[in-house]
Design a protein around this nucleic acid. Structure first.
Lengths: 152, 152
DNA sequence: TCTTAAGTGGACGAGTTTAGTCCTATTTGC
DNA sequence: GCAAATAGGACTAAACTCGTCCACTTAAGA
């Protein structure tokens, strides 16, 4: 499935909601309402995003969360990193892995390049685009969603 | 993690082992020995690969498994499909998904493009490259591992 | 200064998924 | 007929995910 956890999915939705008015801070409860997710879940997601530096928080009464950067400076890769950890398609391909059969399989090197390719693809996608605020680019995409991998 | 299951990892190793001599058939036990994986596990992996049409099997005494196609005609995407199912980065982005908040989130469309981008990247990687039999191309990759996503 | 609204951190449990093993049936060569 | 091999499926133990909850901290405002 190349599946991504639900938390990451929720994170995207929450971030997209924040991106609608990047300057404004919103309480977790309000975001839960807007996204139709439960409050505890949204809260958990926001905690993670805050620790990762994608959102900033203010505590106390009238506190809330806001984007740490403009939506166009937040990438899909950064969002994935929060709840999925460093992108590593196999154990071998992660940093500091201890694959007992590494010498036999030799596969590691190529997977790492696949990894890098995927990561670059994700780094090219911004929150602004994920949130659908970049309709121009989306229309272009319909014409030519093109990807090229050289020399993997 | 964008994690991929171990079975897929094993599948790659086993396929790479088969790719060393594409014309030859090998018994599961022999492949287990070469890959240093346990026999039942290799057997399970091969069964899946056979059902998916990536390897062909011959039963009975002196039976075994062989590649169904030359290594350069087997792609990373095909290998992933066997044990990971159709690539869908979020539930929304899969076919026929029923995401209750789809209208609110609007995120689905962009993820589908990310999906497509990743899939293309995976389709461009062949078993021959994964197995390290394409050393020329690998060297080129060191110079310019480049990926471009247009219009996501 | 007290109350209240909000984020912070951590723990927990149900549910699901994955990985690995084992058993039995089937096929084929000798 | 026997031995060697794959085919299929059932089963279990372990790991992980998700969602929730609770006690704590921080800050605004009366």
């Amino acid at each position: 499935m190349l599946r991504i956890g639900k938390l990451t999915d929720y994170a995207t939705v929450v971030l997209a909601s924040l991106a609608e008015e990047p300057a404004r801070h919103r309480a977790a409860a309000e975001l839960a309402d807007r996204t139709r997710l439960s409050h505890p879940t949204v809260s958990k997601v926001l905690k993670g995003l805050q620790r990762a530096g994608l959102v900033v928080s203010s505590r106390g009464a009238h506190g809330g969360y806001g984007l740490a950067r403009p939506p166009e400076q937040i990438t899909a890769a950064q969002i994935l990193d929060v709840f999925e950890g460093p992108i590593a398609i196999t154990e071998c391909s992660g940093a500091g892995s201890q694959c007992g059969i590494e010498r036999q399989c030799r596969v590691g090197g190529a997977w790492q390049r696949v990894n890098a390719a995927i990561r670059r693809a994700l780094e090219d996608v911004t929150l602004r685009q994920l949130a659908g605020l970049d309709s121009g680019a989306l229309r272009i995409a319909d014409l030519a969603s093109e990807i090229r991998v050289h020399g993997i």
